[in-house]
Design a protein around this nucleic acid. Structure first.
Lengths: 135, 135
DNA sequence: CAGCATCCTATGCGATACTG
DNA sequence: CAGTATCGCATAGGATGCTG
């Protein structure tokens, strides 16, 4: 069956890519951020509930402290997550998803779900491709 | 009892991030590919209709030839697009989206549409953040 | 036309050490 | 606890020239 007819065009109108530069093109501009190595994992975690810095570190054990800091900063900068400091001793900082973050995560989560459900197909395609490459 | 951190996945099954490495985690493994600088743009183009190499170059004028080649190869490797060679003189090569590609693009297009519709909000958040940064 | 080979630069990211 | 500061590397990506 042909899926093509059911694929919705982006915003109904054909988009002229020839005028898109990095700062001008919404797709590039938004994707560039969430395309980082850790962004989706952090968003996925914070979509569940708020977490503190150290909790996120434990959730994603192989992230470096530097990258966790930077990823959180970038996500906060783009308005996807909020940061609240509790002036306790020692201080604690809680990160939580904003409304904008949730609205992004709704479609994004569909892609992540697709990744889980179709990972085997992708790996199979990869193996087949690599196999046919050694000629 | 297992007190490792767990994040609920969209399927309902809790997913243990602490065991996720790049090759093990579907989210990382799939996203890593489509997170490239050009992948989504190429997918977006091919979701519309098949294109030849040179046509894609003109569609995305600021992509280097090297990156177009590499991006197409990677997308083909993961099974998202197919490549058909027409042994004309000079030869022409047509790229078209596969069924797997369409099935990925369906949720992915929702994210791209989100990017278009909410780009202004993101840019606004960014400006506000940057402004509050100069202290 | 549709690439491949080579060289080079930019930067994403990790490792480590230090601080309020 | 939640960062910042510095260093260093690996790789993504660009520029150019060549080929079937």
């Amino acid at each position: 069956m042909d899926n093509r007819a059911r694929v919705p065009m982006l915003s109904g109108e054909p988009c002229d890519m020839s005028t898109w530069d990095a700062g001008n093109c919404p797709v590039r501009d938004v994707m560039n951020q969430i395309a980082g190595k850790w962004s989706t994992l952090i968003l996925q975690a914070l979509a569940e509930k708020p977490y503190r810095f150290g909790e996120l570190r434990r959730l994603v054990p192989d992230i470096s402290q530097r990258m966790l800091t930077q990823t959180l900063r970038d996500l906060q900068r783009d308005g996807y997550i909020g940061r609240e400091v509790f002036p306790t001793k020692p201080p604690s900082v809680e990160y939580r998803m904003t409304e904008l973050g949730y609205s992004l995560f709704e479609p994004l989560s569909k892609v992540l779900a697709w990744a889980e459900n179709n990972h085997s197909s992708v790996k199979a395609a990869r193996s087949k491709f690599d196999e046919s490459e050694l000629a």
